[in-house]
Amino acid sequence: MQGMMIARAGELLENGTVTRVLGWQTGEFVYDITPAVFESAEELEKGFVYNSFCGNNLSKYLIQASRKEGKILVFLKPCDTYSFNQLIKEHRIVRENVYIIGIPCDGKTDGEFLKAKGVKGILGIREEGDNFVVDTLYGEKTIAREDALPERCRNCKSKKHMVYDELMGEEGEVLDSHRFDMVEKLEAMTPDERFAFWRSQLSRCIRCNACRNVCPACSCEKCVFDNPQSGIAQKAAADSFEENMFHIIRAFHVAGRCTDCGECSRVCPQNIPLHLLNRKFIKDIDTFYGEYQAGEDTESRAPLTNYTQEDVEPSIVYTRGGNN
């Protein structure tokens, strides 16, 4: 795949369709992938990588990149195209300045994730059928795809691209995922259990802001968390209230706009399951206001900028059954 991508990107640079290419390059370690812009075939040849570590969603980088002169080529996995659409809907990306090549994806693993599973000294990775073969200092390690995929890929919502100019490989289908199972489990707990669960998660937050910074839905130029008047700008949470506040507000700000791309959970250095907050909003929106998938299209009104006269009253929260 990587070879094909480099070749095609080279062609498009050469014939002047695009002036730059947004892709991935290796960071300090092979599994440490970082987004990068390439301007020539030589640069592509030298630095461009595409492998099973390339989980980074490139859509957000287009906010800046698409405002520069000239067209930029971007490679988007199916889940990334949802984010792209959402950003188009919010007028954050200049569509004319972007050329999208949709690429297939069978799930991306993650260096930290593999390390936690005991794989050390990672030197490279390749896919072989249903397995990842990881090249390490201690020899090759084969690990089943199932066991090497993070939550977001095990519960992938779609292998289908929502938008592209050109497609590489086969187009997939929207999937029937089990992404709300854990939310349901939490809902079935008692409030005390839920409180304890979330304390144990949110109290680990170091307020690095990575979840906010990576999020394609979080694209305000001025963020409430950077406002010195807010009392919580640029600092670690002082107590449980500030932790709760940060996480409630972060998740609420993307409610109805979060595409469930899973980037926030991926980058969190504390492994806080942020997707469980986002998915709660998604699930509630689906239940209360009808099924809605952010980024599926660029036209429809987001649930929180919309209403119907018959909407449920907030008291539904007290009257619906069970523990939730």
Binding site: P191, R194, L304
Partner: peptide
């Protein structure tokens, strides 16, 4: 108030999800 209604519904539900007593909020 239609927008407020949606916002508060979702917020209260989230508070409840975090284990915070839902009866402390009302519209």
């Amino acid at each position: 108030n239609y927008y407020a209604r949606r916002r508060m519904t979702l917020l209260f539900s989230m508070l409840d999800y975090l284990g915070i007593e839902k009866e402390r909020t009302r519209v």
